[in-house]
Simulated assay, not measured.
Amino acid sequence: VPRLFAQLALARGDGRYARLQRTLGHVQLLILDDWGLEPLNEQARHDLLEILEDRYGRKSTIITSQLPVSAWHGVIGDPTCADAILDRLVHNAHRIELSGDSLHRNLPRKA
Rank of each mutant, 00 (worst) to 15 (best):
L4C: 03
F5P: 00
F5M: 11
F5G: 00
A6Q: 12
Q7T: 14
Q7K: 14
L8A: 11
A9N: 03
L10G: 06
L10K: 09
A11Y: 02
R12L: 01
R12H: 11
G13I: 06
G15E: 11
G15I: 13
G15T: 15
Y17P: 00
A18I: 07
A18L: 07
R19M: 09
L20P: 03
Q21T: 12
R22F: 04
R22C: 08
R22V: 08
T23H: 12
T23Q: 15
H26T: 15
V27A: 12
Q28P: 15
L30A: 09
L30F: 11
I31C: 07
L32N: 02
L32S: 07
L32A: 03
D34A: 11
D34T: 06
G36C: 02
E38G: 09
P39Q: 12
P39I: 08
N41F: 07
N41T: 09
E42L: 14
R45F: 09
H46S: 13
D47K: 09
E50W: 02
E53L: 04
E53W: 00
D54C: 05
D54Q: 08
R55C: 06
Y56A: 04
Y56K: 05
G57L: 13
K59C: 11
K59P: 01
K59Q: 14
T61F: 08
T61V: 14
I63L: 12
I63H: 01
S65D: 10
Q66L: 09
A71K: 04
A71W: 03
G74M: 05
V75F: 04
I76W: 02
I76C: 02
G77N: 05
D78M: 00
P79K: 05
P79V: 09
P79M: 08
T80L: 14
T80S: 14
A82M: 08
I85N: 06
I85Q: 01
I85M: 09
L86G: 03
L89H: 02
V90A: 04
H94F: 11
I96G: 06
I96M: 14
E97H: 13
E97F: 02
E97N: 14
L98S: 05
S99N: 13
G100K: 04
L107A: 04
P108H: 02
P108T: 03
R109L: 15
R109S: 10
A111S: 14
